[in-house]
C-alpha cells in the first residue's frame, strides 16, 4: 500500500540536518582527541628530530623517511631480527594457548573426573593472582632449568594452559553447546578426543578466534617477560628493541623510536582488520547458544 508521504515543513528538515551535523562534529572532535597521540607519533617519525618537541602541530615542515632507515639498521642488530623474534614467540605462544586452553576447557566443561569443581575453582583462583607475585619464583625455576636467555620461558608455559582467562572463556562457550550433540557423537562411537576435535572445535571457532587474537596481541605487546628472560640482543623482541632507542644517560633517537613503534603496530592493525568479524562474534556469543 502506498501511503502519501507525511508533509513536513522546511523547518523540520533543517532542524534534522543541523542535529546530524552537530552530532558528527562532536564525534569527529572526540575521535581526533583519541587519535592525536598516534598521529603525533606518526608525524614525529616523519619530521626532523628538532621539530618533535617544538610544538603541538601535526604537520611536519618537510617529510623524510630517514628515521625508518636509521631505526631499522641503526642498532647493532637489525630490527628485522627483532620482528622475527617477536613473530616466532607470538605465533608459538598463540598456538600453545589455543590448543592447551581449549583442551583444558573441554575437560572442565564436559568430562567427569574427581574433584572437577575444586580444580576449576583453583584454576579461577589463579586469575586473581598478580603476575608479579609469581615472577621471582618463576624466574628462579627457569634459571635452574637453564632456560633463561632462551624463548622457552615465554613459550613453553603456554602449552600447559596457564591462561585461566581463556580457559574460563572457552568453558562458558562449550557449556552453551548442547550436550545432546556430545551424546549423539558418543552413540556414533566417538571417543572424548574425537568429540573434541570433530564436534566441539568446529563449533567454537568464534571463541577460538577471540582467544587466538588476544593471545597474539598480548604476547606481541609483552614487554616485561622478554625484558626479564632475554638478555642477548640477538634474541630481543620488538618491544625490547624499542627501549634501546631511549637512553637514560645520553641522547635518545626519538624519531627512530617513533618510526619503529609505528612499524610494530602494523601486525596488530592487520590482525584486527582481518579478524574483527570473528572477534566481535566471539565476544558477543561467548557462553550463549546461537
Amino acid at each position: 500500500m502506498n501511503r502519501p508521504p507525511i508533509p513536513r515543513g522546511p523547518g523540520a528538515a533543517r532542524h534534522s540536518i543541523r542535529r546530524s551535523a552537530f552530532i558528527h562534529a562532536g564525534l569527529i572532535v572526540a575521535s581526533f582527541v583519541m587519535l592525536y597521540p598516534l598521529l603525533w607519533m606518526l608525524s614525529g617519525s616523519l619530521r626532523p628530530e628538532n621539530e618533535i618537541f617544538g610544538g603541538s602541530s601535526l604537520i611536519p615542515s618537510h617529510i623524510s623517511l630517514d628515521a625508518f632507515v636509521r631505526g631499522w639498521n641503526g642498532l647493532q642488530i637489525s630490527f628485522g631480527t627483532f620482528f622475527w623474534n617477536s613473530l616466532v614467540i607470538s605465533v608459538l605462544a598463540t598456538i600453545g594457548n589455543v590448543f592447551a586452553c581449549s583442551l583444558t576447557a573441554y575437560a572442565f566443561a564436559r568430562l567427569k573426573f574427581r574433584g572437577r569443581n575444586f580444580w576449576f575453582a583453583l584454576m579461577l583462583g589463579t586469575l586473581m593472582l598478580p603476575y608479579h607475585v609469581t615472577l621471582i619464583p618463576q624466574y628462579i625455576l627457569f634459571l635452574d632449568m637453564g632456560w633463561v636467555n632462551t624463548i622457552l620461558p615465554l613459550v613453553v608455559p603456554k602449552y600447559l594452559a596457564v591462561d585461566a582467562f581463556f580457559i574460563f572463556l572457552m568453558v562458558q562457550f562449550f557449556r552453551g553447546i548442547p550436550r545432546e550433540l556430545d551424546e549423539a557423537a558418543m552413540m556414533d562411537g566417538c571417543s572424548a578426543w574425537r568429540i573434541y576435535r570433530k564436534i566441539m572445535l568446529p563449533l567454537s571457532l568464534p571463541v577460538m578466534a577471540t582467544a587466538a587474537i588476544f593471545s597474539f596481541l598480548w604476547t606481541w605487546e609483552d614487554f616485561f617477560g622478554p625484558l626479564i628472560y632475554l638478555n642477548d640482543m640477538k634474541s630481543y623482541t620488538v618491544q625490547i628493541g624499542l627501549r634501546t632507542f631511549v637512553d637514560s644517560t645520553g641522547s635518545s633517537d626519538w624519531s627512530s623510536l617513533f618510526a619503529m613503534s609505528i612499524l610494530s603496530l602494523i601486525p596488530i592493525f592487520l590482525l584486527f582488520l582481518f579478524f574483527q568479524r570473528a572477534l566481535i562474534e566471539g565476544i558477543a556469543t561467548t557462553g550463549m547458544k546461537r
Binding site: E180, L181, A184, A185, M187, L203
Partner: peptide, 13 residues
Amino acid sequence: IAMVFQSYALYPH
C-alpha cells in the same frame, strides 16, 4: 543401539 534425540542433535557444522 542408535538413538534419535528430542532436539534431533544434528551436527550443525
